[in-house]
């Protein structure tokens, strides 16, 4: 089996997720347990190959495709966990498109980025690159938080639209309650904000110390991350200081996710990637 692992490509897990998504869509029309287990099987196969891809290729997390594959991998775990636990809820049909979108974007950008070698010890752990690694992981976890908040917001908006239309509560799509989706969004963003702040501060220190060129400060990645942090500030203010309706908070979270995608897809000013 070991000889096949290096042959795993993005297409393997991308197609697995796509088939899992198709089966989940079919399940909305024909709620059969076979479709559910089929979806879970392909989802698990996708996650398996995705994991081995990340382990064997070790793409640079600072590169656009590397960061996108890493974020989509965490979201794939989130999808499988949720699908297993929320048997009757429409879960995969919301999470898998985001996973697929990030994988597709990563795939599109991968041809333009440098994929790292496969050293036995990742080189960012050696010497002064350690703090660069911490910076990267903090921002990656913040990105996962934003993505989860985005998913909760999409589902919130969908559920709120159904309630506004007074759709049948026992319709084909069985959603989580507004309260639960709001709590999911709140927790994800509350967790992501300190991670984003720390990651951003650490990045600023590293940039000033080692790569303090003026042009670096104005790269899309850095400006986008600062913009994302500012959107977070507005989000927290709207949630805790002003009584803003859930629908508006959800829309603001969508903006934050849009900025996140731009940040992830943009080239890092000095750690490789698309220039």
């Amino acid at each position: 089996m070991a000889e096949y692992l290096p042959q795993i490509t993005q297409a393997c897990f991308g197609l697995s997720y796509l088939i899992a998504f198709s089966l989940e869509v079919l399940r909305i029309r024909w709620p059969r347990s076979g479709l559910r287990y089929g979806g879970l099987l392909f989802g698990a196969a996708g996650l398996f190959t995705h994991t081995f891809y990340l382990l064997t290729r070790q793409p640079d997390l600072a590169s656009p495709s590397g960061s996108l594959f890493a974020v989509s991998w965490v979201l794939a775990i989130f999808y499988l966990y949720g699908s297993w636990h929320h048997v009757r809820r429409a879960w995969a049909v919301f999470v898998l498109p985001v996973v697929l979108g990030l994988v597709w974007l990563g795939f599109m950008l991968s041809s333009q980025t440098v994929v790292g070698d496969t050293p036995s010890v990742p080189d960012w752990l050696i010497g002064n690159r350690f703090w660069g690694g911490v910076h990267g992981i903090l921002l990656l976890l913040a990105a996962v938080g934003v993505s989860v908040g985005f998913l909760a917001s999409i589902m919130y908006l969908f559920q709120a639209a159904r309630l506004k239309k007074k759709a049948n509560p026992r319709g084909r799509l069985n959603m989580l309650s507004l309260e639960r989706l709001e709590a999911m969004n709140r927790r994800a963003l509350n967790l992501a904000f300190p991670l984003l702040t720390l990651g951003l501060l650490l990045g600023a220190v590293l940039l000033k110390q080692y790569h303090g060129l003026a042009e670096n400060w104005f790269s899309v990645k850095i400006l986008g991350t600062v913009g994302l942090w500012l959107v977070f500030l507005v989000l927290l203010y709207a949630r805790y200081a002003v009584n803003v309706p859930g629908r508006r908070l959800a829309r603001l979270t969508l903006v934050a996710f849009g900025l996140l995608v731009v940040v992830l897809a943009a080239a890092h000013p000095f750690a490789g990637g698309m220039k």
Binding site: Q159, L163, P169, R170, L176, L178, E179, A183
Partner: peptide
């Protein structure tokens, strides 16, 4: 029962 179904669409606990 339909009324309670609607309540459950909004609240969880």
């Amino acid at each position: 029962s339909v009324a309670v179904d609607y309540v459950r669409q909004v609240f969880d606990h």
